[in-house]
């Protein structure tokens, strides 16, 4: 029989705060699971099923032997095939470039002891507080003047908008690394660049991965900027394509197909998150502790 350690005295007492907290957490979890279930189930249903039996299991398409009919419809009608390629390229590149710029920046801000580095870090952090929705129009006006109102301009905007958070996240990481390692590297004869790449970067790997994943998820789901900047259907990202598809599908009452389209966009990132959740959470809390 496994030994169950006895809790510390006092910790077993009933605490109203703990009780309310537990209830709230479970309610939120249950609600989210329900929404997820509804999304996945509805993606396999006919519109009639969706509206008459919203929480039942799907059956019509299964009976007819075409269970993935909605997905096929969405994929073909929405132009997801091309959009997947654009999205993966755009999001992948923007994420990598963001981290490639932010990591050295965060390193320099935390580690070089430059006068004013603390203030500068705060200025960058303020960038996180500016809701990007408020700058969409000026951004579009400026970029369209230089003919960047396309996927390339969107790439620049994505990178620029992701940098504040990423720098902020990574400064926490670099700050938590011990000074002695850098000093040891300096005595070993490593240049600042060498120290960064051979010593500090490998140690901040957890932070880099967290930054990559969080940015990837955020940019994958980003819709507003994609709607503003992308006009050429060939450049559409998944969320942009879904937006167009939404109009078409609801006009034709293809709600099953529409929800299948939503599922196609949402589920990959959800899966990524579930697989990497532990990594992300340790990444977010490291650096803040101590």
């Amino acid at each position: 029989m496994a030994y169950k350690p006895k809790p510390a005295p006092g910790s077993r007492r009933f605490s109203p705060l703990k009780f309310i907290g537990t209830v709230v957490v479970w309610l939120v979890t249950a609600f989210n699971l329900l929404v997820l279930y509804w999304l996945i189930a509805a993606a396999f249903k006919t519109p009639i099923e969706i509206f008459t039996k919203p929480f039942a299991l799907p059956y019509t398409w299964f009976q007819r032997g075409v269970p993935f009919r909605n997905f096929e419809y969405a994929w073909n009608q929405a132009g997801f095939g091309e959009a997947v390629v654009s999205t993966v390229l755009l999001v992948g590149l923007a994420t990598v470039v963001t981290v490639a710029i932010s990591a050295p920046a965060a390193y320099a801000l935390t580690r070089f002891g430059v006068r004013g580095a603390g203030g500068l870090t705060n200025v960058i952090a303020v960038g996180m507080g500016v809701p990007f929705q408020t700058v969409v129009i000026p951004l579009f006006v400026v970029l369209s003047k230089v003919h960047l109102d396309n996927i390339y301009g969107l790439f620049i905007v994505y990178v620029a908008l992701s940098i504040p958070f990423t720098v902020f996240l990574l400064t926490g990481f670099f700050r938590s690394l011990p000074d002695e390692l850098e000093e040891a590297a300096a005595i070993d004869g490593a240049s600042a660049t060498r120290t960064f790449f051979s010593v500090m970067l490998p140690l901040a790997r957890g932070g880099l991965i967290t930054a990559l994943i969080l940015n990837a998820i955020g940019l994958w789901n980003e819709t507003l900027l994609a709607i503003v900047f992308l006009k050429d259907q060939a450049e559409f990202t998944l969320s942009r394509a879904l937006f167009t598809f939404y109009g078409a599908a609801s006009y034709q009452s293809e709600y099953g197909g529409l929800i299948a389209g939503v599922a196609l966009v949402v589920l990959p990132m959800l899966l990524l998150y579930v697989v990497l959740a532990r990594q992300i959470i340790t990444g977010l809390t490291l650096g803040s502790g101590k």
Partner: peptide, 20 residues
């Protein structure tokens, strides 16, 4: 002269080994 040019080696209190 910067540390690298001094021809010295140092042992730190907490060793400062490269963990990776």
């Amino acid at each position: 002269v910067p540390p690298a040019g001094r021809d010295i080696a140092m042992v730190f209190q907490n060793y400062a080994l490269y963990p990776h």
